[in-house]
Design a protein around this nucleic acid. Structure first.
Lengths: 232, 232
DNA sequence: CGCGGCGTTGATCTCTGTCAATACTTGTGG
DNA sequence: CCACAAGTATTGACAGAGATCAACGCCGCG
């Protein structure tokens, strides 16, 4: 782990608030590992001994049903941590994880973390904040699936990717469209069509490059009732 | 708070694992309050100073969009705690809460809890476990909405209400059908139809009383791929 | 060049939401 | 006690969103 990596770790809400030496003792001893695209990091139901911070790349969390269908419940990027919760859940991962690009991860040992929490109560508050943050994003995801159309969910996804929340911009899709589709709770075909239907709102696509004429227009489209899209 | 209430509090994963005196100091000083059906407990965006344990009744958590649509993200009952996460999330509730029946709640002060966590690190682990548990149930909810049909979600809901996971049983629906519908991510009309379509699987309904011939049949229906319901 | 992975497009079908009409239940006031 | 109103659940007709199945285009790669 070089200083660039360390900087990333310290930028997370979890490791950014704790004293430097505590963070070092948690993460320093563990080697950073690289994973190829497509590597399974852990599987749902597996004993959970540790959690991760992403130093580079993208990771997806998903659930698999008995018949093989898959639901993506989160996609994380550099600077984000995941699977913290598993440590406290009877020690089993409730989801599976896979590297969707080639990836570098720092692994934090769960038992060590629990010991540190006992010695260092502020650490617990940081963990709770981090866990609460994940909770909130899941709630938002549920809200989205339940009351937005596929087009609106996609528009929201693009808005969150955009650097500013007004004016025009050009963004690169961070990972495969099939994964974006799954993340947004739809099929790849539907994503394709949804993208096409956003054209009148100033969204044009070429490969993985998306140009947005006016981000604010998209924001207003997302906030509109699913039904009154006449005006657009 | 009588001894029956106290027993309920101690039955929660959160308050059950901590030393008795700590639990008492957290909860004992706060008066138990009663709320009528329909009472708003707090609203999304409001400053969050405390969280709750349900001593009696049912509470729903939901999100409201600018245009008034509502998505239920959880329904809790006696012995469950809710809104713990808000305490650690910059102090604002990310959801709204309402009593769906007449309800009695114990309120726990957030600032007090934070202080206790600093003194009592084991408390932090209990909080983390509780929070992780909520996280897991949200993940499961997302999975359900994303890859089960309305009928399957309903079947799953009934199965979770049933006392055993095989054989026959009779259960009472715990709250209004409109709320069940919203909790399951569908409209009341769809719930009605989904119930009707479960009849061939041995589910019959009268008012709020549901009779199930064979719970295991429902379980297998939920686990089947959404499409191959031919056999049923 | 041919092959395989990924994405798009088209035709069709199914599910669920919407709108409207109709019981049924409960509570209220005459 | 009945009439009436309001809230809740069911049912029907219809429309729209999204899934499915299939075909095709595009691109990178051996």
């Amino acid at each position: 782990m070089d200083s660039r990596d360390w900087q990333i770790v310290r930028s997370t809400p979890l490791f950014g608030t704790m004293p430097q030496d505590v963070a070092l003792s948690l993460i320093g001893s563990q080697p950073v590992r690289s994973y190829e695209k497509g590597t399974t990091l852990f599987q749902q139901g597996e004993p959970a001994s540790s959690f991760f911070v992403i130093l580079d790349g993208w990771v997806k969390l998903f659930r698999i049903t008995p018949d093989g269908n898959e639901a993506v419940v989160g996609v994380f990027r550099r600077g984000e941590s995941f699977a913290e919760a598993a440590i406290f859940l009877g020690g089993r991962y409730p989801v599976s994880a896979e590297a969707v690009t080639s990836t570098r991860l720092a692994r934090i040992d769960g038992e060590l973390l629990r010991r540190r929490i006992r010695e260092q109560p502020d650490l617990a508050l940081a963990m709770l904040a981090s866990s609460s943050h994940h909770l909130k994003s899941l709630v938002e995801q549920i809200e989205q699936i339940k009351l937005l159309t596929a087009q609106q969910r996609l528009a929201d996804f693009l808005v969150n990717l955009a650097p500013a929340n007004e004016g025009s911009c050009v963004i690169e899709l961070p990972y495969e469209k099939a994964l974006i589709a799954s993340r947004l709770g739809m099929k790849p075909e539907s994503l394709s069509r949804a993208l096409a239907k956003l054209r009148p709102l100033g969204v044009s696509v070429d490969r993985e490059t998306v140009s947005i004429v006016d981000v604010d227009l998209l924001v207003r489209f997302v906030e509109a009732s699913p039904r009154d899209d006449e005006g657009f």
